[in-house]
Amino acid sequence: MAPPNTDRKDWPLFEIFIRPKNGLSHKHVGSLHAADARMALDNARDVYTRRGEGVSIWAVPAASIAASDPSEKASLFEPADDKIYRHPTFYDIPAAVKNI
């Protein structure tokens, strides 16, 4: 048997964002592997837009995303839970105003 090819490296991971239609923002849909950005866009087209899901694709190297640490969840997010006054729910909205 031939020795295993130790040169083989996995392609870098890309996170894929798709804009479902004009006017909406890009939404994260998943991730994939690709050798470079152009291949990431092609692969995203084939993997995530086969059923007419989108009008625009962003491919972002996963290594470029700065993510919050899950272990800091309590200190980062829980303080907001008991500050209901930050929600604009105390205003009377005139009936004539729509789309709020």
């Binding site: 994939l32 592997h33 690709a34 084939d46």
Partner: peptide, 11 residues
């Protein structure tokens, strides 16, 4: 050779 390419070729 890769999952993504598998989908591309069959597309």
């Amino acid at each position: 050779p890769e999952l993504e390419e598998d989908i591309a070729l069959t597309n």
